[in-house]
Amino acid sequence: MRWYVVAIYVFLYLPIALIVVFSFNAGRYAMDWQGFSTEWYFKAFANPFAMKALRTSLVVALWTAVLATMLGTLAALGLERMQGWPRRAFDALIYVAIMVPGVVIGIATLIAFVTVFDAVNPFLAGLFGDAAPQLAMGLPTIIGAHVLFNLAVVILIVRARFAGLDRSLIEASEDLYATPFGTFRQVVLPMIFPAILASFLLSFTFSFEDFIIAFFVSGPDSTLPIYIFSSIRRGITPEVNAIGTVVLAASLSLLVIAQFLLRDRNARRPAPDKAA
């Protein structure tokens, strides 16, 4: 049993080790070790296309995480107040959004954007003439599709946390003459905060990692996964390994920092908050 578990961990980490090791390869071909070098790290950071893709991915992931968490949390709180068919209809929407595969979400949003743009652009042209702004695929369309994709997940996470809350605290707050907003800010928000944080991190990760949806709606703005995919197609150099290693190192450092901060907070607070 123990050996089985060890074997699984080797299986999980073998490819990652390979990525990291070959990011320090002096040669330019994969699986062809030419000696140790850090040159590809410098090359990666000097490559404007790679850096632009990285920046696009970070911007998209940040906006997606903010918007999806905000709208999803509001919707989860609103859903709690709904009854009857509107609520059932909304629940159905959530499950559709979760069950439809990413590739179909990509197609659906592509069609939606193209249809709207085709309808609006001639109208804009008629209004402003040649100087008319043209709507086209790019950052906003990627963010829109990613928010759609993450909304359902956020709603489910926040709702699960909200369902486990002690309602008497809310009633107590109302009895003590708190305004609805006061109750929200001082009672509900602190209690659902772990779920909000988890939603934010999850949406950020999903958005940063997504390839297939962005592939359909990115237009000329490549995200990092799209850049990596086209590099693999062209013949990959250790430059891409270097970028992958940097991203992994950055997320691991964030994880360690977050762990450190949470432990610090938990040490000061008597009740540890594990469930999110």
Partner: peptide, 28 residues
């Protein structure tokens, strides 16, 4: 007023689902 608040809370998410998922799937 209560219904109004609920609609405001759920509205944006519902708009996303309708405009970017349900209608496009119907179009597909």
């Amino acid at each position: 007023r209560r219904t109004g608040t609920t609609a405001l809370l759920v509205g944006p998410a519902a708009a996303f689902f309708l405009l970017l998922l349900v209608l496009p799937l119907a179009v597909v």
